[in-house]
């Protein structure tokens, strides 16, 4: 595989990551959302492996396998299990105004392109053009957390954000040092577990995972 092809595939995978990010922004069903997240993880892990191969950085293989096992198998499995356990499989979330969210998403892509343009100009890596996409993925993940009401979709937004960060690290500097990456992976895993525990608590307290319910925790609202 020469540099040319690798750069093309890299571009393609970046586009797919962006597409899945937009897909998650628009998807209402929790199940499909997890599928999209799984796909995003898969694209990310393939991308990391390819970048590792081309740049001859062998620790990226480990990151790739880590991503694969964590984001394609383990986390989706945990989320699945949660959904089955909490019996929220069929829940459809009311997402406010999808077209508007999409437009904001597009604006965020343009904005991140604007932000990363100086970095891209200085960089010589073959992956430099995907930095903008990576940053956009982070922002779209955050946007998703803002627009969603359901706790599970919020955690997916959070994980998507982390995907973006990981992607940014790969494209900007061929990945973080392995120690850092391992640490982050562990953090994410633990975060997922903690979220899982919280879900149970929220669910048992409010009988719902709608985070709007948490507004009731405010003192002045407590009138019952």
């Amino acid at each position: 595989m020469n540099i040319q092809t690798a750069s093309q595939i890299n571009g393609f995978l970046a586009a797919f990551v962006l597409l899945t990010a937009f897909g998650m922004l628009a998807q209402k069903r929790i199940y499909s959302l997890i599928h999209l997240f799984t796909w995003q993880g898969l694209f990310l892990s393939i991308n990391t492996a390819i970048v590792g191969y081309v740049a001859n950085k062998h620790h990226l293989y480990i990151s790739s396998i880590l991503t694969l096992s964590l984001k394609v198998f383990l986390l989706p499995y945990i989320l699945h299990a949660l959904i089955v356990r909490l019996n929220i499989r069929k829940e459809v979330e009311t997402v406010v105004n999808i077209p508007a969210t999409m437009l904001i998403g597009i604006a965020l892509v343009i904005f991140s392109y604007h932000l990363t343009a100086p970095v891209t100009e200085l960089s010589t890596l073959i992956t430099r053009s995907t930095i903008a996409v990576a940053l956009a993925t982070v922002m779209i993940g955050l946007l998703m957390m803002i627009t969603r009401r359901h706790a599970v979709t919020q955690i997916i937004g959070f994980l998507a954000m982390e995907n973006g960060l990981f992607f940014a690290a790969t494209s900007a500097t061929y990945g973080m040092p392995l120690v850092v990456e391992l640490g982050v992976a562990l953090d994410v895993l633990i975060a997922a577990f903690i979220f899982g525990i919280f879900f149970f608590h929220i669910h048992t307290t409010f009988d719902s995972l709608d985070v709007e319910q948490m507004a009731r925790l405010k003192e002045e609202d407590y009138t019952e």
Binding site: G11, A14, A15, L18, L19, F22, A26, I98, P99, M102, I106, V109, I110, Y113, S129, T130, A132, V133
Partner: peptide, 23 residues
């Protein structure tokens, strides 16, 4: 249909964006 055609528009826009960003 608005969602369907909105998806088409989004795809086209992403195509345009990736033309400028990735190529």
């Amino acid at each position: 249909l608005t969602e369907f055609l909105g998806a088409a528009f989004l795809m086209a826009t992403l195509g345009m964006l990736s033309f400028f960003i990735l190529e």
